[in-house]
């Protein structure tokens, strides 16, 4: 479990591997939250990062189950396979699962085909704010990583939000050593990112090493697809409006990142096992967010979304 390095005095010593150090750090962060928060929650999006975060939570509080519920801010447009794993994972962990649908989005029938960026704004950004207010959560764990996107490189592990859930990049606290200042005024909340320092490769290696269950969509299989605006989309259910003359084509595809199926681009792949997925990732030449429509508007769009309250 430990590996050897040589220190300055030439004495051989055991020390932790990079994944062990990351794991220990994430567990430390989660325990700090539970020791200080009044009503914490873990945001669970069913993706690989959420899977790792949930696994770390089980480790942090073992033999007790994680002492907080899971919250899925749903859009109703996720892949079917994601809903299946979501319910199973919560049950396996012995945790309560809360699912929130923005009632306004339900009523207006907001969908990614007809409403463009309004889809993300209403289901996810507004939905998340509604859910946090509804249950009065003061701390929410999120699975964001600093290597995902430029503006996230500067995000704190503990990110403070005003009473109306806004993020002020100029008013965040310095984080020294592993001393997190968890104090907040009434109404304020904290988003905590315990896997901030993990990279995509770390996540995959850890899933492999720990045997963590992930959505099968990460592995290649023949699936029905159409190509729209340069994105290869999977026709996951009958709600997908095919255009005249458009017929789904069966292709060997997998997903590097998962979200709403009409917004998530697949890649053609033959990687059917975790090592093959990692192999493909290491040999690939494009970054993982390329498959997400949300980042394509402008290079700073993620940051704008974050200020408005999107995770």
């Amino acid at each position: 479990m430990t590996t050897s390095t040589v220190d300055t005095q030439g004495v051989s010593q055991a020390t932790l591997t990079h994944l062990q150090r990351l794991e220990a750090e994430s567990i430390h962060i989660m325990r700090e939250v539970v020791a200080n928060a009044e009503n914490p929650v873990m945001l669970y999006s069913v993706g690989k990062d959420s899977a790792v975060m949930l696994h770390l939570a089980k480790k942090a509080f073992y033999p007790a189950p994680p002492p907080f519920p899971l919250l899925h801010v749903d859009t109703t447009w996720k892949f079917k396979a994601m809903y299946a794993l979501r319910d199973k994972a919560a049950k396996d962990a012995g945790m309560d699962l809360l699912v929130h649908h923005n009632p306004e989005a339900v009523e207006k029938g907001i969908n990614p085909f007809d409403h463009g960026s309004l889809h993300t704004d209403m289901w996810k950004t507004e939905g998340l704010k509604q859910a946090l207010s509804k249950y009065d959560f003061d701390v929410a764990f999120g699975g964001a990583r600093r290597d995902e996107e430029k503006s996230r490189a500067k995000e704190r592990v503990f990110s403070f939000r005003s009473a109306n859930h806004r993020w002020d990049p100029k008013n965040q606290r310095p984080e020294l050593w592993k001393l997190y200042n968890t104090r907040k005024a009434k109404g304020e909340s904290i988003r905590v990112f315990p896997i901030s320092n993990w990279t995509e490769l770390d996540i995959w290696q850890y899933i492999h090493l720990e045997g963590i269950e992930i959505v099968p969509l990460y592995f290649s299989e023949k699936r029905p697809t159409v190509i729209r605006n340069g994105l290869m989309l999977m026709v996951d259910d009958e709600r997908f409006p095919l255009e005249a003359g458009e017929t789904p084509v069966m292709r060997s595809i997998r997903f590097r990142t998962l979200g709403c199926y009409p917004l998530t681009g697949a890649v053609e792949s033959e990687a059917r096992t975790l090592p093959e997925v990692i192999q493909e990732m290491l040999l690939t030449t494009t970054s993982e967010r390329q498959g997400r429509a949300i980042d394509h508007d402008q290079s700073a769009s993620m940051e704008k979304k974050k200020q408005e309250g999107y995770f």
Binding site: T3, L16, T17, L19, R21, L22, H208, I278, Q279
Partner: peptide, 16 residues
């Protein structure tokens, strides 16, 4: 490319 399993084993012992 040649042996991803061997590569992964090697990379589990990285330090940080």
């Amino acid at each position: 490319a040649e042996d991803i399993d061997a590569y992964l084993v090697k990379h589990q012992h990285k330090t940080m």
